[in-house]
Design a protein around this nucleic acid. Structure first.
Lengths: 341, 341
DNA sequence: TTGAAAGCGCTAACAA
DNA sequence: TTGTTAGCGCTTTCAA
């Protein structure tokens, strides 16, 4: 496996020093713009660097300074994560901001078990915690700067930024009840995720608030996949007392529900009102534009990078732990109307 | 900026050696499962590692071996890259396979200019080359293992894997002509990308093959964004001699075109046949399922990782350069029919 | 303003 | 089977 070094050694700081006729310390100084260097030597060094096409080894720099500008984004890899709008939005938010801050981004898709070697990483963003709590605990124990997004972690000393799914879901119920609905179903996401749990809780709280009794058969559980959404919808449409409205835990599932309804000649919104979650642009191009909840995923991700960067610069112990919620917004389009009598 | 090392030194191989009462070489040996170590010492080392919660520094390992298991995925950051189905599919393909091969994935979104410091990286995948050819050339010059996807680079000594956009586009024209269409328009993607160029070329070749004269006004240029797609569609629908079919360079743009057509009471497929490109699942949930071209993006990306891994293990000079095309597949759904007379 | 030298944490050749 | 030691390429004291 391991080969000997290629005959052509990499050019290093030593070569530059030799060519510029200075010591390596001086070269280091000009690279880092630290300390003062005589203009003349500086110029010679710069020239040498140019001529040799020298690039400092970030590895060696990190080893020597003990500082790394790499941040790792850890995304739990559950079934279908990659079909989710969610993942891309997070990557987008983190990706743009790390680039802007000149940080390197290590993308790590993890299952629950593989342990992640965080050495060499300056900070970590956990995009949700699903079955990988142990990883988080390990990182905290090592004192590596770290922040959790999309999961409001109550029982650990770690900063986190989450979406207020519960409140948003309550508002969805408020809205539907406001339209006159009483038979409101909920197709959940994967209840291993906090988001799905919170949406379910918001739904039940919402009903409670309006004195609408909870019905077991109106709660249909899925894993966020389109396949299960379809099954759930089938079950739902076959109920003797069919709901007049359904709140679906993601837009892509809501689209599947609408597609199935159409096949079954159940018309949205006339016969069935549908609300999704995500504000996925796909929701715009169907026969009926989907009413949904917009969550500021990109902003949340960017905020996380900003905050993490602060922690990395100030030191874990010098930044207070902060836990916050970002609000969502109900986006009303065409998929809901008052129920037919 | 630079702080002194925290008082609590990281635990290193030395600590483990001390605790296990062996030399650091022995510790290194058990970490790497290299050479043979007496079972007894091995056990002591393992225990020490456990007790100290020791994790080898990947930085130091890489520096010492000169080998890195990090591969960088460089994605050109043009407007809207992150809204593209393309980017996520690539990340998905690369992400899953790097995980499987136990490689770390560095995600780098680049504009044309920022130079990427490749030191510390074992290999690089360029996801398309748009305005960043210089980066590629630099990497090649440094002799870093590298592979380009989604761009068939003819004039550089580098392996590449691309989609056969041209052939696929010709087939689209064949199909439309086969249905009886002669007035076929094309809404292009960003012509800075090779994919968009090739699709345009396939379109023109297809027409030529069927002796259909090319019409300037039937070629509408965009940057792949939905906004420009809408503008292009508006222009197209206002032509005196309106096309009966349009081949759109991406599904998301095709959806926008269909949405606009509907607003204008131009019915798809009756009044206008539409073909997209990507096989984006969003195409399935509209009023009319979109006929499109399926491109094996994920496979291509995975193949790239495999190939890159080989290069990384064998050495750049010991692996022949290979350039290949992956074929596409026309997926016929409901958005096309013979033209009305 | 500069250079020598001691790390940073690890691997691997060599000797024992 | 083990330990000693010389790197890997850089930063950073310390002394000059």
């Amino acid at each position: 496996m391991r080969r000997r070094k290629e005959p052509s050694r990499n050019i290093s700081i030593v070569d530059v020093a030799r060519l510029a006729k200075v010591s390596i310390s001086t070269v280091s100084r000009v690279i880092n713009k630290s300390a003062s260097v005589k203009e003349q030597s500086r110029k010679r060094v710069l020239e040498a660097i140019e001529r040799l096409k020298y690039r400092p080894s970030v590895l060696a720099q990190r080893l020597a300074t003990g500082k790394s500008n790499v941040i790792a984004l850890i995304i739990p890899r559950y079934e279908g994560i990659f079909y989710s709008f969610y993942a891309l939005e997070i990557i987008r938010g983190v990706g743009t901001l790390t680039a802007a801050l000149k940080l390197d981004l290590l993308l790590h898709l993890t299952d629950a078990y593989t342990s992640f070697n965080a050495s060499g990483v300056g900070g970590i963003i956990f995009a949700d915690i699903i079955q990988n709590r142990k990883q988080l605990e390990e990182v905290l124990e090592l004192g590596i700067p770290c922040i959790v997004i999309n999961n409001y972690v109550k029982d650990l000393e770690v900063s986190c930024i989450a979406i207020d799914n519960q409140k948003a879901s309550e508002q969805v119920v408020d809205y539907l009840v406001g339209l006159g609905h009483r038979r409101i179903a909920h197709i959940t996401g994967d209840l291993l995720t906090q988001a799905a749990q919170d949406r379910l809780e918001g739904y039940t709280n919402g009903l409670k608030k309006h004195n609408i009794p909870l019905r077991e058969e109106y709660i249909l559980k899925t894993d966020y996949s389109r396949g299960q959404a379809r099954q759930a919808a089938e079950k739902m449409l076959e109920l003797k007392e069919r709901p007049t409205a359904v709140f679906v835990a993601s837009d892509s599932m809501a689209l599947e529900v609408m597609a199935l309804a159409q096949e079954r000649r159940v018309f949205v919104p006339r016969d069935l009102s549908v609300v999704g979650f995500d504000d996925n642009p796909s929701g715009l191009y169907g026969p009926v534009a989907l009413t949904t909840v917009r969550q500021p995923l990109v902003k949340m991700a960017q905020d996380a990078v900003k905050e993490l960067n602060v922690i990395m610069n100030m030191g874990v112990k010098n930044v207070p732990i902060r836990k916050k919620y970002f609000p969502c917004e109900l986006v009303i389009r065409d998929s809901c109307q008052p129920p037919q009598q």
